[in-house]
Amino acid sequence: MTQIELPSYLEQSGEVKARFDDIKQREVILELKDLEKVFSTAKGDVTALKNINFKAHRREFVCVIGASGCGKSTLIRILAGLESASAGEVLLDGKPVSGPGPDRGMVFQGYTLFPWLTVKKNVMFGLRSQGLGYATAESEALQWIDLVGLEKFSDSYPDQLSGGMKQRVAIARALANKPRILLMDEPYGALDVQTRSKMQSYLLEIWHNIDITVLFITHDLDEAIYLADRILVLKSHPGEVEEIIEVPVPRPRDPEQFISPEFLATRKRIDQLIHPPITEDGEDKLNMIRLTRVGDEVEP
């Protein structure tokens, strides 16, 4: 196979470089300081996360990627306040956070819409919890439903919607609280490929239209590169930051860019980081037993 000559993923065009310079100038929304998470199990302590240091700037789109079991879900649950860190701090706008709160919106992989509430009332949930009156909450909710393009379904129940639509409601519901940051935990993991790519474009559009910082967890390389300004690559056991990659693909993003040299170079780099080449003939190698009939041999 011929090797295509790819530029380094570290090479940035002037336009991209200017954008990163601009982002770094902006205020820090979320800061993780020496974050550590240790789980006590019957077999002893397991360090899930270690030495996590990171700053997300305003309106930045950050993806966190890593092999399964690297602790990326634990990380986002700590940020959301659903789990507590064993050591270190999470600062939102410079103030430490403890426990969940409406200043950090969360979108889960499993939709988690309230099945007994209509789309509109799901989106109103956070607003009402904060003590907003029904009429105000309703009119605000309807604006967010408009934003995600579901105005025709505002009186439907979640179970009447497709997976992609449910996830749009979940995004609207999280955004309605006007959080400082939107945390997304593999939100499109359960969607089929077509819906998923449509949802990615939707998300970029929404992000473009409002003042929101996004932290997005995924295990899909293309998804991460397509969406992110920066990608936090996590290493497994213990989960540590392996590298923070500044994605050299210019914005606005377009699915056409999936085969652009910058995109492929970045992809190759992340792939190396999370799938290191297997050196020893260990358990990862398959035992090759042929079960086919004679006559269909394929060239090795």
Binding site: A80, G105, T112, A174
Partner: peptide
């Protein structure tokens, strides 16, 4: 009741009593 519904409610800013009356009870009805 799916615990992630309670987690979702927490991230939306629901407080103790709201969790009981707005999530748990309608969720199991």
């Amino acid at each position: 009741l799916d615990i992630s519904l309670l987690e979702a409610a927490l991230t939306l800013g629901a407080k103790r009593m709201q969790l009981l009356f707005k999530v748990v009870i309608p969720g199991i009805l």
